[in-house]
Structure formats: structure tokens, C-alpha cells
């Protein structure tokens, strides 16, 4: 009997931790949705949502409730169980990268030796979900969206890996908290010319990897209706949106930890929480820049997208990696 009780208590603590992380994923996606709509309005010289709550602050929670309450309309031509699996597969792993993210010296769930590889492995799995969604929808728009998503994600995973490897060469570790600790005196992006180039490559490739404008070709609403998630309604569509915002935030957290010194910063008047607050300030600043790019640049053509990765980003990242390796050995 005692073992059963202790198993339930152990299970409860695991479930509680999972609930906290998933709750953060939901809150973060809601907040980013609001920020995005508000900023988009400002960039287009509008004021954005104003009606629901103070300055429209309740707009996104209300939209979320609407999505949950909506009927799921499933077209008769979709391909069986995979159609239902795809949104779950997009949403479920999205919370995993937060396990190894070093938010502060003491706030990290899992101090994994290969933390950086773990984050990349989880992010790469999103491609499969997007493909399954587009393919199982069984219509031409979604199929083209899925084809584009797969080609785009394969092409942009390489520059992401190569640019992050530059910093791994400089620190000699895949451990994210170790990478942050090394940057105590100066951030990598200020310290090393190779790291600046690596960050630029990473930033462009990360925008493409999360399928955001100007690289949002898998969903390109003016050409493909809504691309891979055309046939999804209600919360199934909502899951894709939450996954997109979460991966956006994960990429910004990764850039913060790897290039911008993670939790290091001048002391703030919040005591022990100031390091954690610094991390979030940096991450959300990067999110702001990503949103800024989205509403500033027009969408690229597909051949331009492929050329950018294979002819520019990959050679630059590869050369940068070799030069950095040479410099660190000399």
C-alpha cells in the first residue's frame, strides 16, 4: 500500500512539473499572439485590438476559448488517423526543449550534457508533424504546403547546426548552462567575430525553420489558402498555432543562451530572480525582432528561399566554422 501511495506521489510531482511547463506553453503562446497582433497594428500604423478588455488584452484568451469551443469540421476526403495525429504530434514535443533551457543558474529542470543536441532533435521533429498534416489533408494546396515545408526544413536545419557548432567549438561543450557560464565576462556575440556571423546565420535560418514570414511558404495564405493547415479547424488549428509560437520562443531562448550570455546581466532589484528576468528580457527582445521582420519584409519566392540557404547561408556557416576552428587552435 505504501509503495502505491509513494508511486502516486512521485507520479503527481512528475505530472505537476509537466502541467507547469505546458501551462507556460499556453500562456506564452497567448501572450505572443497578443503581442504579435498589437505590434503588427503598430507597424502598419493601426492601433491593433482594442475592444476586449483594457487595450484589447483579453482578445487572445477569448480567441482561445472560441477555438476550444468550436466544432471540429473534418472533410470526408482526409486520410484517416494521420489527420488527427498530426496536430498532436506538432503540439506534444513543443514543451520538451524547456526541460534543458538554463533560465537561471538554479532554474534548469535537466542539466543534460548534450542539451543543445536535445533541443535541435526536438525542433527537427516538427517537420514530420507539418508534413503529416499537409499530406493527410489530401488536397493540392495542403500537399504543396507539405512539400515546401519538408524541403525548407531540410535546407535550413544545416545552417542552424553549423552556426551553433561555431559556439560549441569556442566552449568545447554541448551543455547549455556551461555555454552560458563561459560568457560571464562578455557575451559571445560581442566577443568573437565568428560568433557574430554565426548568430546572423542562425537568426535567418531560425526564422525559416519556424515557417515565419518572410519565409512562411508552407502556409503562404495568398497562394495556398492556408497551406498545410487548410483543412484544420477549431483546436486542431489552435494546436498548430501554439506549436508555432512555442518553437519561435524556443529558438529565441536558444539564441539568448548561446549568443547573448543567457542569464548574465547587471544586477536588477529583484534579488535572486534578476538573472531569470534578464534571460526573459533578452529572449522577448529577440521575439520582438522576429515579429518586426515578419511585418516588414515581403515573402520571398521559393527558389530565392532555396538559393539563400544552399548558396549563401551554408557556405558562410561552413567557412565560419572552419575559420573559428583554426583560430581556436592557433
Amino acid at each position: 500500500m505504501d509503495t502505491i501511495i509513494s508511486i502516486t506521489s512521485a507520479f503527481t510531482s512528475v505530472a505537476l512539473a509537466a502541467a507547469v511547463i505546458v501551462g507556460f506553453v499556453f500562456v506564452n503562446a497567448t501572450a505572443l499572439g497578443y503581442i504579435e497582433r498589437k505590434l503588427c497594428g503598430r507597424f502598419q500604423r493601426r492601433i491593433g485590438p482594442m475592444e476586449v478588455g483594457w487595450h484589447g488584452i483579453l482578445q487572445m484568451p477569448v480567441d482561445g476559448i472560441k477555438l476550444i469551443a468550436k466544432q471540429l469540421i473534418v472533410p470526408s476526403h482526409v486520410a484517416g488517423p494521420l489527420f488527427y495525429v498530426a496536430p498532436v504530434l506538432a503540439f506534444a514535443p513543443a514543451a520538451l526543449p524547456f526541460l534543458v533551457m538554463p533560465f537561471a543558474p538554479r532554474i534548469q529542470v535537466l542539466a543534460m550534457e548534450a542539451g543543445l543536441v536535445f533541443v535541435l532533435a526536438v525542433i527537427s521533429f516538427n517537420t514530420f508533424a507539418v508534413f503529416l498534416a499537409g499530406w493527410s489533408s489530401n488536397n493540392n494546396y495542403s500537399m504543396i504546403g507539405a512539400l515546401r515545408a519538408v524541403a525548407q526544413n531540410i535546407s535550413y536545419e544545416i545552417p542552424i547546426l553549423l552556426s551553433l557548432l561555431t559556439v560549441v567549438f569556442l566552449t568545447g561543450s554541448f551543455n547549455l548552462s556551461r555555454i552560458v557560464q563561459v560568457q560571464e565576462s562578455l557575451w559571445f556575440v560581442l566577443r568573437h567575430p565568428g560568433a557574430i556571423l554565426a548568430f546572423l546565420v542562425f537568426f535567418i535560418a531560425a526564422i525559416a525553420e519556424t515557417n515565419r514570414a518572410p519565409f512562411d511558404l508552407p502556409e503562404a495564405e495568398s497562394e495556398l489558402t492556408a497551406g498545410f493547415h487548410t483543412e484544420y479547424s477549431g483546436i486542431a488549428f489552435g494546436m498548430f498555432m501554439i506549436a508555432e509560437y512555442t518553437y519561435l520562443f524556443v529558438n529565441c531562448c536558444l539564441a539568448t543562451a548561446v549568443f547573448f550570455g543567457g542569464w548574465w546581466g547587471p544586477t536588477l532589484p529583484f534579488g535572486q530572480y534578476s538573472s531569470c528576468i534578464w534571460f526573459f528580457i533578452k529572449a522577448y527582445t529577440l521575439v520582438f525582432i522576429v515579429i518586426w521582420c515578419r511585418w516588414t519584409f515581403p515573402r520571398v519566392r521559393f527558389d530565392q528561399l532555396m538559393n539563400l540557404s544552399w548558396k549563401y547561408l551554408i557556405p558562410i556557416a561552413l567557412g565560419n566554422l572552419l575559420l573559428t576552428a583554426l583560430c581556436t587552435k592557433l
Binding site: A121, F131, A146, F174
Partner: peptide, 25 residues
């Protein structure tokens, strides 16, 4: 060996599955 496991996900579940998917698609 968590590192090997990460590599398995990154290369097999991530890359090789996608290549197979491309072929069947």
C-alpha cells in the same frame, strides 16, 4: 547514453524519416 539517443532522434527520426517521406510523397 543520452547523447546517442539524441543523435538517434536527430538523424533517424528527424532526417532519414523525412527522406523516406519525400520518396513516398
Amino acid at each position: 547514453s543520452p547523447f546517442l539517443s539524441m543523435m538517434q532522434i536527430l538523424i533517424y527520426a528527424g532526417a532519414i524519416t523525412i527522406v523516406l517521406v519525400f520518396g513516398t510523397m
